[in-house]
């Protein structure tokens, strides 16, 4: 497999060196071939995929948390309903009539309207 070196772009300013200007320039010694490029692209895609999956999983995690909170709300609503029923039973007419206080009550012999 032969390899054609890259033709570097050279700016005009660099071509027209001025006096006392430094004439050297940096060229990396590391050369990336097509396989390396392919691998890098694949790696980048993999990383992006992983990031996506992480986010999606995190959202699902929130779903479970939300579900848990919903269940708690439902449980608390049930408890509240049970308490309301108990309250209604305790204040029901029959309960009130049979209470010790009610049993002590008597019918007034006569009533008068105050002007």
């Amino acid at each position: 497999m032969s390899y054609q070196p890259t033709t570097y772009y050279t700016s005009r300013r660099q071509q027209n060196w001025s006096r006392n200007q430094n004439t050297t320039r940096f060229v990396s010694a590391v050369k990336l071939g097509p396989v390396a490029h392919t691998i890098l692209v694949a790696l980048m895609i993999t990383v992006l995929g992983l990031i996506y999956l992480t986010q999606a999983t995190r959202t699902t995690g929130y779903d479970y948390a939300a579900q848990k909170i919903d269940s708690q709300i439902a449980e608390l609503n049930e408890e509240r309903a049970d308490l309301q029923i108990e309250n209604a039973r305790l204040t029901a007419l029959e309960t009130v009539k049979n209470s010790a206080v009610a049993k002590e009550m008597t019918t007034p012999a006569s009533t008068e309207f105050v002007e």
Partner: peptide, 10 residues
């Protein structure tokens, strides 16, 4: 929903 029928937002 997941296998336990927990609804998911995805």
């Amino acid at each position: 929903a997941d296998v336990r029928d927990v609804p998911l937002t995805i």
